[in-house]
Amino acid sequence: MSLYDHVAVVAPGLSLDRRTALAAAARSRGATASVDAELRAARERLAAVGEPVPSSATARQRLAEAEAGIERQRERVATLRGRLAETGDESLETEYRRAVRELSELETERAAAEERLERARERAREARDARERRLRLRDRVDNLERTARAELVEAVRPAADEAAASAPDGTAASFDDADGVTAALALVRVGVVRTPVVLACRRFADAASAEAWLESPVIRL
């Protein structure tokens, strides 16, 4: 986010992310942080990695279904065997044999489902390695960004404090104590903003005095 994005419209009730805006003001003045090169490299690496984890949900579901099917079929085979032994009915014999064959087919299916799931798990493991590297890189980028922000904020803070203290109708002694409008005006004065900022506050008598103090083009409402 550029400084302009933070202070495009200066109006009462304005809410600012002050540290980020201060860092942006420092950047607009050409300030750099010691970790800039490292940060750029880490961001590039981050953009380059990351592949989706192939879901093994389908494989898991198939395996669960195959197992449930086997359970049911086993019970059926046992029942038929019992009835066969009890009655000696030959017509049951065919049914019994078919049930046994179906059970063995189901067991083959389960073995295939297990294998598919194992392959899916292996693919997922590789993809997760990539995701893990990505997360570490993400954390690294975040840390570097924090370091850079802290340095930039410290670089620009004296100027921002002075601007906040000298802002027209301002009552604050420092940037952090200033109300939103005063802080935004201080940022514009301290930073470099080329696009005219919209002023919807009654701090300046006219556009000319506003531009003189802010050292930036303004549109006054």
């Binding site: 997760r128 995701r131 893990e132 990505r134 997360l135 993400r138 954390d139």
Partner: peptide, 10 residues
């Protein structure tokens, strides 16, 4: 439960 992104970790 293992998470692999900032959002999931949060």
């Amino acid at each position: 439960v293992v998470t692999y992104s900032k959002g999931a970790r949060t």
